[in-house]
């Protein structure tokens, strides 16, 4: 059950909400792993949640996100490690989304959701 493949950025500068936003992964096992870097572009601390969705934006419940949420300092970023099972398929497309927790006190709040699209292929 060891992870065989990673999609990861070599680094992420400040003011990037999520990198990478596209990726292709090959795995020799029944699951694949992706590493993404959500970032805080604001001048104040924010909390970011990371969720995994399928092609239709239905949550992928069986995905493991480590950590699923994080508090980021201004301009900071951190790595988030995601493991997704193939569920018997030879190919799987997922969206990994970094979602900021809404802030403000007005009647209409805005939540930002930046989603990367990843294609994983199981090598038989």
């Amino acid at each position: 059950m060891a992870m065989a493949a990673f999609a990861s950025a070599t680094g992420s500068a400040a003011a990037q909400a999520l990198t990478p936003m596209r990726g292709e992964v090959r795995s020799f096992t029944d699951q694949f792993a992706v590493r993404v870097f959500p970032a805080n572009p604001y001048g104040h601390r924010i909390r970011i949640d990371v969720h995994v969705y399928d092609e239709t934006f239905a949550p992928v419940q069986e995905a493991q996100v480590l950590p699923p949420s994080a508090t980021l300092a201004p301009g900071d970023s951190r790595s988030v490690y995601i493991v997704v099972p193939f569920e018997g398929h030879s190919e799987r497309k997922v969206r990994i989304c970094a979602e900021s927790v809404p802030f403000g006190h007005a009647a209409t709040l805005l939540r930002t959701q930046v989603c990367g699209r990843f294609l994983a292929t199981r090598v038989q």
């Binding site: 992420s12 403000g104 009647a107």
Partner: peptide, 27 residues
């Protein structure tokens, strides 16, 4: 290296107000 990225930054939240018959709240 700059990776392809999309950055969303909230400027100001919105404000809803009611219409004259109080059947709609709209920004």
């Amino acid at each position: 290296t700059i990776l392809a990225a999309c950055v969303l930054t909230v400027g100001t939240p919105g404000v809803l107000v009611a219409n004259g018959t109080y059947t709609e709240l709209s920004s």
